[in-house]
Design a protein around this nucleic acid. Structure first.
Length: 416
RNA sequence: CGGACCGUAGUGUAACGGUAACAUGCGCGAUUCGGGUUCGCGUGACUCCGGGUUCGAAUCCCGGCGGUCCGACCA
């Protein structure tokens, strides 16, 4: 991608009303545009990051056997009445609207009901199970107060997976695998060290649900962390009884602020019962399907990554999610430098490496360096009079700051 | 949803009740060419909307809309 063609531009100052670091940096660097409080548009750079996150997550969901689908964002009222969730007193953060004929409907804030109803049409035998399906969907929540940039938005991208099992054992083993998949996801985006499986309230079907909480000053949850055991307890269930259940002692726990990036739940038969989601076993006996749901806030995860990986100059993307792998800077306009940089660009592209190529003629060296630091691409490669004279390329790692002069033929070995 | 503060060029800031200014950005021309170079010329806001007070309102008052923060909420 040629930087001169990229329609977004960086800016020196963030809008004054943004306080959250993730929003400041993402807006300054041109990843997102704020439409209104809690509502952000994702521009080309931001979308690349979201897509990378999606792909990491998708791979793990597929490994679990999940099949990807895409449910509607508009939802009718009847299915929610079956589970007694339509009433505003039960769920108060919906966006609801009406059709021209006055039929009531809503913008999706979750999808348990729709998927349970769909599955009830396709599942009737033990042979149809176990099964799981997931989607990447925009969710809408009418938050009383949006805050923290893209971390608590009214419209956000979420991955939600739903599992359907024949019995508790089958459910438990899937649940365990899903938990492990989540751990791999957080590891591959570089958050393993600061993300804790956290025990939280479980609703009516299991004692606890599991949240994935990333330690972060701008987080909204308070959790109690055991660094040794690598687990945590959410404040909402932090009491003597819970500690006893989990075999934890108060002394080993540290209070931390954290952001909930994922949450997995056992749903029992609540939705199966409501939508007649039953299967017949080998003897023809009917049983309700056991469900689980597994959420992961993709856009929120992006916000958390920015909160954690940045410095005073800008964002420092982990390699797995960065919008590009290499930021190639061309300093100077001589035809020799230009053609050299062009050939480095072509070589990287040919090797399948995603490159943002800053070939702008009207930007100074300092401007290019500043932009590069702000955008936060992992590897910066400079072609200039200096490098041409030495016959080498300059390679800088955004994270470590390490600068090396390398031979051009070694470039791929370094950045691949 | 309660409370506080705020709303002026694309962005960031000024302006006592008296001609809306500066920086940045953008355009043109020079200059410079490894850390947001420097200079000149130009461009760009009927000061969020509606009403009121006043000879005169960005400024004071009322209402609305919008924004940020604190709290409540986030099954």
């Amino acid at each position: 991608m040629l930087q001169s063609k990229l329609f977004t531009k960086t800016r020196k100052e963030a809008p004054k009303d943004e306080v959250a670091e993730n929003a400041k940096l993402l807006i300054r660097a041109g990843f997102v545009h704020k439409e209104m409080a809690g509502v952000y548009s994702y521009l080309p750079l931001g979308l690349r990051v979201l897509r990378n996150l999606e792909n990491i997550i998708r791979e793990e969901m597929n490994k679990l056997g999940g099949q990807e689908l895409f449910l509607s964002a508009l939802q009718g009222k009847e299915i929610w009445e079956k589970t007694n969730r339509w009433d505003d007193r039960v769920v108060d953060n919906w966006f609801k609207t009406k059709l021209k004929n006055n039929a009531e409907l809503s913008l999706a804030f979750t999808h348990e009901e729709p998927i349970a109803r769909i599955m009830s049409q396709f599942v009737s035998s033990y042979k149809d199970l176990p099964f799981s399906a997931y989607q990447f969907q925009v969710k809408f929540r009418n938050e009383a107060r949006a805050k923290s940039g893209i971390m608590r938005a009214r419209e956000f991208l979420m991955k939600d997976l739903y599992s359907f099992s024949r019995n508790e054992n089958e459910h438990d083993s899937f649940y365990k695998k899903a938990k492990e998949a989540y751990e791999r996801i957080f590891a591959s985006v570089g958050l393993a060290d600061v993300t804790y499986i956290t025990f939280a309230s479980g609703g009516s079907f299991s004692k606890y649900s599991h949240e994935f909480q990333t330690i972060c000053e701008t987080g909204e949850d308070i959790i109690y962390v055991s660094e040794d055991k690598k687990i945590a307890v959410n404040k909402e269930v932090y009491d003597d009884k819970t500690l006893k259940d989990l075999g934890l002692k108060k002394e080993e726990l540290k209070e931390k602020k954290a952001i909930e990036v994922g949450n997995i739940f056992s749903l029992g038969t609540k939705f199966s019962d409501a939508f007649n989601l039953y299967y017949a076993d080998e003897n023809g006996e009917k049983h309700p399907v056991i469900m689980g749901c597994y959420g992961l806030g993709v856009s929120r995860l992006m916000g958390a990554i920015v909160e954690i990986f940045s410095d005073e100059k800008g964002i420092i993307w982990p390699e797995s999610v960065a919008p590009f792998r290499v930021h190639l800077l061309r300093l100077g306009e001589s035809s020799e430098i230009a053609s050299h940089a062009d050939s480095v660009y072509a070589g990287l592209q040919k090797a399948g490496i995603e490159v943002l190529y800053d070939e702008r003629k009207d930007a100074s060296a300092g401007e290019k360096f500043a932009d590069s630091d702000l955008i936060g691409i992992p590897w910066r490669v400079v072609v200039s009079a200096k490098t041409s004279a030495s016959g080498k390329l300059e390679l800088k790692n955004r994270k470590t700051g390490e600068v090396k002069m390398i031979n051009e033929e070694d470039l791929l070995n370094h950045v691949k």
